[in-house]
Amino acid sequence: MLWIKLSIGLLLAILSSQPLYAAPFIPTDDLQILETLPTDSPSPRYSSVSDLTATTTLNSADNAKQLLERAYLEGDPRALGQARAQLDQSEDQSIETLMLRARALQSDHRFTQAKEILAQILNQDPAHPDALLTLSSLLVVQGQFDEAMDYCDQLNDPSLEVYQAACIAQIQSMTGKLSQAKQTLNSLASLAPRLDASTALWIYLIQADAALRSSDTTLANQVFAVIDDQTVPALMARADWLLSIGKYQQVIDLLQNHTDKDALLLRLIEAQMKMGDPKADANLALMKERIDVWQLRGEKAHTREQAMYALLAKQNDDALNLAQDNWQQQRETADIVLYATTAIKADSKKDINIIRQFISDTQFEYPTLERALILGKIEECLNCTATQAMNKDKS
């Protein structure tokens, strides 16, 4: 199965990676350079339009699949653009190609269009496992948990037992059954070494999210002992955990060579600011240059990153407005934390109440965040007090 062999569940971390030498400008001729790629970027897949056109006629689905996986794991936006160009060139309407188109749209945050294509696939094949699992994953990202669970339940082929269990556990972890989900995930993690790498990564990332929200140091140590430290999603998860427990120098050590990835750069800046590192200002300016380029292009897929930047730049009102916009599209843990933090920083009782209502309605579990919302005050490292108390109890 094409799609189940890719990383499923947390597939929206397609991260822009272009550092700039100067503020953006509009070129007046073809010889002007608008931006340059980082020196450690992977080599380009195509050198000309003819290369791209030739590729679309040969193993197009395989090439697009590889490009989408590269975009996700390496945070390379060129790979996403190349995949989209290939798929736009193709007239193939097979389910395999439709799945790839849905993935590309999902990666570009065009969720409505992605869901339309997935519905088209399910109209042709109601039991199509890739479409069911991808649609469930997309609905989880949007916080539509009941609908997401319906699609998990339809994965009833015995050969899909691991995927169904992970699908259900992910939703349970977000809807009031975090302890139960952690037990299921521990069982799945014991199978991970015998699974394909992308499925194992999916399970580990769900575990990392569960560890973060439950301030579970033991689980975090278990996950980060086995998860890779090279792919962007894994680095994000590790950095989020370290930031939540105040291990800022470890974040700097982890991410200082990954400034070409926006989501990682933002986490690096946060750690540098907490440590009083003078490099924080230069990196904040670098992030601003990238945002200027997104705005110049009219790109809409970076709202979370723009809100994170505004928060770091102490533009609290702008950060809240952007977090509100992001909330309409995404409701993963990072989005909930971002919205809560900006609401508290801006002292917006209305937005605090919206988040608390969401937590009440879904039974979303993140005790330290909920406590911050109740108090209207958020600590520099959200899980510091909780993890210190847990460690003291164990000693």
Rank of each mutant, 00 (worst) to 15 (best):
R78K: 15
A189T: 03
R103V: 13
M99S: 12
L160G: 03
L133D: 03
R45K: 15
D108R: 13
A343Y: 07
D76F: 11
K65N: 11
K300C: 05
A165W: 02
Y339F: 14
S136Q: 06
K279W: 02
A263S: 14
L296N: 08
S179M: 07
H128W: 05
A104T: 14
A280M: 07
Q164F: 03
E161D: 04
F25I: 08
L160K: 12
R304C: 04
I359M: 15
A307L: 01
E270H: 09
P126Q: 05
L243F: 01
K65R: 15
W241N: 04
R331Y: 02
G143M: 09
A234H: 03
S179D: 14
P44Y: 05
P42F: 00
A13Y: 08
I171P: 09
L243G: 02
D125L: 08
R238A: 04
E74K: 07
L338C: 08
H302D: 10
D216R: 08
Y309Q: 05
Y46K: 03
R371N: 12
A282S: 13
A285S: 09
A13W: 04
M99F: 07
L322F: 00
L265V: 04
D88E: 11
A181K: 09
L369S: 10
Q222V: 04
Q306K: 15
I168V: 12
L122I: 04
P42Y: 02
S60E: 13
T56R: 15
R194T: 14
S198N: 15
V337K: 03
S7N: 08
G376R: 08
T199V: 01
L254P: 11
L118W: 12
E289K: 15
L284W: 05
Q272E: 11
L135I: 14
I291R: 07
L52Y: 02
Y163V: 02
K314P: 00
L87I: 07
Y151H: 15
D229G: 07
S60W: 11
Q330H: 13
I168E: 13
G9H: 15
M390A: 14
L178V: 14
A386T: 04
L52N: 11
A234L: 02
D51W: 01
I252W: 10
Q89C: 08
I252L: 06
D51R: 08
A271W: 05
L80V: 06
E332L: 11
L10S: 11
I252Y: 13
Q164N: 07
L254K: 08
T184E: 12
L98Q: 13
D260C: 01
D51V: 03
L80A: 10
L242I: 02
D51F: 01
E305S: 10
C381W: 07
Y151A: 09
S7V: 10
L188I: 00
L105A: 06
A23R: 09
Q18P: 02
A71Q: 06
E289Q: 15
Q222I: 07
Q329T: 05
A181N: 06
L58I: 14
I203H: 00
T218E: 13
Q324K: 15
I355W: 01
